[in-house]
Design a protein around this nucleic acid. Sequence first.
DNA 1: CCGATGGTTCGGTTATCATCGAACCATGAC
DNA 2: GTCATGGTTCGATGATAACCGAACCATCGG
Lengths: 221, 221
Amino acid sequence: MTEGPDIARIAALVADPARSSMLLALMDGRALTATELSSLAGVTKQTASSHLAKLVDGEVLQMEAQGRHRYFRLAGAHVAALIEALMVFTSDAAAPVRTGPREPALRKARVCYDHLAGEMGVALYDRARDAGWLADDLGVTDKGWSKFSAIGVTPDSLPRSNRPQCRACLDWSQRRHHLAGMIGKATLDRLFALSWARRLPASRVVAFTPEGERRFREWIG
Amino acid sequence: MTEGPDIARIAALVADPARSSMLLALMDGRALTATELSSLAGVTKQTASSHLAKLVDGEVLQMEAQGRHRYFRLAGAHVAALIEALMVFTSDAAAPVRTGPREPALRKARVCYDHLAGEMGVALYDRARDAGWLADDLGVTDKGWSKFSAIGVTPDSLPRSNRPQCRACLDWSQRRHHLAGMIGKATLDRLFALSWARRLPASRVVAFTPEGERRFREWIG
DNA sequence: CCGATGGTTCGGTTATCATCGAACCATGAC
DNA sequence: GTCATGGTTCGATGATAACCGAACCATCGG
């Protein structure tokens, strides 16, 4: 009866329906206030407060106080990865029966925490590996930097952080990997800045403009 | 209050200490009997039976009856991925404080579900991507097949299944990817068959012989 | 047929925890 | 100062579920 890592503790934090709703709502990387989260989860402020305290205590969420508001966001990309790992199950159960695109727009391009997921995200990741933008250890190569610079993602523009420069994140709808880490975030930021795409309100959908999609595909080659 | 995917249901299955112990015990990919699991989890047979029924019902475990024994194994590689995603948390909490190699042998080479993980597993994956054994979509190339054939992993030797031929699995200790999927399993099987390595009893450690490690490194180039 | 062993089913007990009402604290607007 | 709003604390309630004892079913070995 070897006492392994305390998997159960973290799992229990996600196991409550109210808490899991909150986590899903935060998957787009925004920071929401306690009351917003309470109404999203369908519970009162008191209950939400209790839940949020547990999530922060368990280091699943980060809290930032601004004035009389408290903003909550996911504690990091590893939390987003965990949630997506859980979502794989629900898509599994449904896939053999109805592979139908329940949310076509969501499958095509969506925000995963702070980077691009869905078909477009997977295409970017595949291309980056294929064309040698990334090394084996997922470090960005010289060739990669020249490519990323073309849309305004330069080494200098990345904030100093101990967060991995580049990570691969398993995609829920595609069952493949997409580009995560700081490079993933910076790239998505640039897509918005360049107006190639915009985020639909109250949704994780990333909507490309026709022109934007054309130039994106042209960019990745 | 959008009803998202039922994350909480799966998380709840992992959230119980007894059940999480069982899942951790099954991470090496073996199939264990109900009583073995009950003693590992520190509960009686009755409670274990109840837990196992829930896990099978939730499609987290698969059950196979052999005579009067019931063998349980993880339902797939996505379950292993989920568990590793949870382990990232516990290692996270500890890493900044003591990066020390708590279990050096475990970090070097271990079994993850049914394939090779740890430094050696990551080295294999990196080399496979680097040297073009795998295509962008992680399909095995002609070049790859000739390499894998050299240690006895041929297309014919792989069982027909809808399981992905090759997958990348995020490594808990290395925070990098290692080779998973059917190719990953077949490769590990061959390492044992060739006596390049053996599995330490009652542990997930994969112990290479000196000769075995030499030939493994020579093989991957 | 008879024990022995592996697993399950059933009932009852216990403990944990999500939930909300109500009261309370803190910030900001006026 | 007063009032409104965002959040937390406290206590009580209720539901869920883990747990075990005991009885039961199924398979294997003789």
